[in-house]
Design a protein around this nucleic acid. Sequence first.
DNA 1: TTAAACTAATACTAAAATGGTGTCAGAATG
DNA 2: CATTCTGACACCATTTTAGTATTAGTTTAA
Lengths: 131, 131
Amino acid sequence: MKLITKQTDYAVRALGYLSGRGDTFISSGEIARAENIPASFLRRIMQVLIKAGIVAAREGKNGGVRLAVNPATVRMIQLIELFQGKIELSDCMVRKDICPNRRTCALRTKIQQAERRLFQDIGKTRLSELI
Amino acid sequence: MKLITKQTDYAVRALGYLSGRGDTFISSGEIARAENIPASFLRRIMQVLIKAGIVAAREGKNGGVRLAVNPATVRMIQLIELFQGKIELSDCMVRKDICPNRRTCALRTKIQQAERRLFQDIGKTRLSELI
DNA sequence: TTAAACTAATACTAAAATGGTGTCAGAATG
DNA sequence: CATTCTGACACCATTTTAGTATTAGTTTAA
């Protein structure tokens, strides 16, 4: 059971790398080499970050990517949801039909409690705190 | 992203059912019907619980399963690890070679914090609290 | 003005995890 | 001895995750 997939992990590392490089555009290739991430995989990851507005891209030679926001405004929960989808915990919260005694399902309550905590802990952590 | 898979979910529901039935042996089939769980799937799940010593089985006609331990001693973390494996969070904690700057990896620290909390919240929850 | 170094977009494949089924054997019971 | 169970697996389908590749288009610099 993994809480953080490679995509999220790679994204954090790439963003960390970028945050140390100011305003200059860095190529995905350079990041991939430096952080030991498969290059084409990282490119796809970058495109997600670009569409999310977290990094900005510049095409062409000497192009690349750079942070588009202050690292203090990027939260782990945003990255996790971007690459792993919303935290669902268990189907019984999503597909309400499958749990016969849903109303009194105590597991559900417990799990929701845990969810709230998880949001507090890794969720609200800012990218700036990681670098 | 899911914290609880169906196997774990089914296991909890089955154990909940058993906990209301005292010392008599109940067939997997009956539990499956009552809790709306695919029968053969539940059978496989029960075998795991049996091997883990959480339920005891009796073969043959009028056989079945029953709780082998006090529900208060069964913790969610045990069930999660049984069916979903240990909580690993990210590879950078497991395969120490892949993260180049592991020593100062701040994500690692944060994630470990979250892990501890997660253990407290759903992990240490007792089966008896869920039923 | 063209080659080189980039991103954009997306299709594709491989591997692993998850969810679910089926079967054959053997034990207990009535 | 037929029925109702578990034991022990092998098998399959689907989804998720990881990773590769390809074609097109943009920018720059020689």
